[in-house]
Measured scan of single mutants.
Amino acid sequence: MSIQHFRVALIPFFAAFCLPVFAHPETLVKVKDAEDQLGARVGYIELDLNSGKILESFRPEERFPMMSTFKVLLCGAVLSRVDAGQEQLGRRIHYSQNDLVKYSPVTEKHLTDGMTVRELCSAAITMSDNTAANLLLTTIGGPKELTAFLHNMGDHVTRLDRWEPELNEAIPNDERDTTMPAAMATTLRKLLTGELLTLASRQQLIDWMEADKVAGPLLRSALPAGWFIADKSGASERGSRGIIAALGPDGKPSRIVVIYTTGSQATMDERNRQIAEIGASLIKHW
């Protein structure tokens, strides 16, 4: 058993032996400061991975655009179909130039040979490839079927209504393609630790998130040596930015963190910096 498999397999085991986890309101002070700095709403939640207890939250039940963070949920739905014998990670999917949409750094290189379902999930999560996400959405029946999958998990909040890139429109008060921090954190925890997916599929999902290559300026920039993080970021119109993550010290995840912001006029660099500073406060007061 690899170190990674050891880590995921023991998450339920550690729940019975973990020390009490204490919240630190200092992080919420930073979240509120980020709102002031960005001139935008910020949603935040910090969840204990083992118990599911909410440690801190700010606007946990307000809607925010999901942006590309939905791609983790999408690959969770794909893995659920794999577990049920309805899909194979090794199945190759062929597509054409007409299928390519904006920001497809991986799929645009494989027009001649296509990509496997496994490769598409990797591209969608680690590189946020939009065509990969659309191709995967097609395999499960489209955005409405992803919403149905989430409903069956008990998440009646999170919804996907459109495809890439239209889902990134982020119109104020538009509930399409949105979630709430509390709903996203709970759903992510179920995917990573619950019985919905097999152990192998849970491991695969967290491996893809751990290999994320496009979230460096966010929480990863504040991470001390030896800490673990598996994450997925997102960005969209109207100053929207977000990240969902499982992270913790000693090389294993122990908390879920979800951060969303929307409605800012700030630059992408400034949005990144504010999220990184929230992460730094979280780690300092861990």
Results as ranks from 00 to 15, higher is better:
residue 3 I to S: 14
residue 5 H to Q: 13
residue 9 A to T: 15
residue 10 L to S: 13
residue 11 I to S: 09
residue 12 P to M: 13
residue 14 F to C: 12
residue 19 L to M: 15
residue 19 L to H: 15
residue 19 L to E: 10
residue 20 P to A: 07
residue 21 V to G: 11
residue 22 F to D: 15
residue 24 H to D: 08
residue 25 P to H: 10
residue 41 R to C: 05
residue 42 V to S: 07
residue 47 L to Q: 07
residue 49 L to I: 05
residue 54 I to M: 11
residue 55 L to F: 07
residue 58 F to G: 00
residue 58 F to C: 06
residue 60 P to C: 08
residue 61 E to D: 13
residue 63 R to H: 06
residue 65 P to G: 05
residue 65 P to Y: 02
residue 66 M to T: 03
residue 70 F to V: 09
residue 76 G to V: 01
residue 78 V to E: 00
residue 82 V to P: 00
residue 83 D to I: 00
residue 83 D to R: 02
residue 84 A to N: 13
residue 84 A to G: 13
residue 84 A to C: 09
residue 85 G to R: 10
residue 87 E to F: 06
residue 88 Q to L: 15
residue 88 Q to V: 11
residue 89 L to I: 08
residue 89 L to Y: 07
residue 91 R to E: 03
residue 91 R to P: 00
residue 95 Y to V: 07
residue 96 S to Y: 11
residue 96 S to G: 13
residue 96 S to A: 14
residue 96 S to P: 06
residue 97 Q to E: 15
residue 97 Q to S: 15
residue 97 Q to F: 15
residue 97 Q to M: 14
residue 105 P to T: 07
residue 105 P to L: 06
residue 112 T to M: 12
residue 119 E to V: 00
residue 119 E to R: 04
residue 124 A to N: 02
residue 125 I to P: 00
residue 127 M to R: 10
residue 131 T to N: 02
residue 132 A to V: 03
residue 135 L to A: 05
residue 136 L to M: 07
residue 136 L to H: 00
residue 137 L to P: 01
residue 138 T to A: 15
residue 144 K to C: 11
residue 148 A to G: 11
residue 149 F to I: 09
residue 155 D to N: 03
residue 158 T to Q: 00
residue 159 R to H: 12
residue 161 D to R: 00
residue 161 D to V: 03
residue 163 W to K: 07
residue 164 E to L: 03
residue 164 E to D: 04
residue 165 P to S: 04
residue 165 P to Q: 02
residue 165 P to I: 06
residue 166 E to P: 02
residue 166 E to H: 12
residue 167 L to S: 06
residue 167 L to M: 11
residue 169 E to T: 11
residue 173 N to M: 12
residue 174 D to C: 04
residue 175 E to I: 13
residue 176 R to Y: 07
residue 179 T to Q: 00
residue 180 M to Q: 14
residue 181 P to Y: 00
residue 183 A to D: 05
residue 185 A to C: 04
residue 186 T to H: 14
residue 187 T to E: 00
residue 189 R to L: 10
residue 189 R to E: 07
residue 194 G to Q: 11
residue 197 L to A: 01
residue 198 T to L: 08
residue 200 A to N: 14
residue 203 Q to S: 11
residue 204 Q to L: 13
residue 205 L to M: 08
residue 206 I to H: 06
residue 213 K to R: 12
residue 213 K to E: 12
residue 215 A to R: 03
residue 215 A to P: 05
residue 217 P to V: 08
residue 217 P to R: 09
residue 219 L to H: 01
residue 220 R to L: 01
residue 220 R to I: 01
residue 220 R to A: 02
residue 221 S to T: 12
residue 222 A to R: 14
residue 223 L to D: 02
residue 226 G to I: 00
residue 228 F to R: 05
residue 234 G to C: 00
residue 234 G to D: 02
residue 236 S to C: 06
residue 241 R to E: 00
residue 242 G to M: 00
residue 242 G to F: 00
residue 242 G to E: 00
residue 243 I to C: 06
residue 244 I to P: 01
residue 244 I to H: 02
residue 246 A to K: 01
residue 247 L to D: 00
residue 250 D to W: 08
residue 253 P to V: 06
residue 253 P to G: 06
residue 254 S to Q: 12
residue 254 S to W: 07
residue 256 I to D: 00
residue 257 V to E: 00
residue 260 Y to F: 11
residue 265 Q to L: 13
residue 266 A to S: 12
residue 266 A to T: 11
residue 266 A to P: 04
residue 267 T to N: 13
residue 270 E to A: 10
residue 271 R to T: 12
residue 273 R to T: 11
residue 275 I to L: 08
residue 277 E to K: 07
residue 277 E to C: 06
residue 282 L to T: 07
residue 285 H to Q: 07
residue 285 H to E: 07
residue 285 H to P: 03
residue 286 W to M: 04
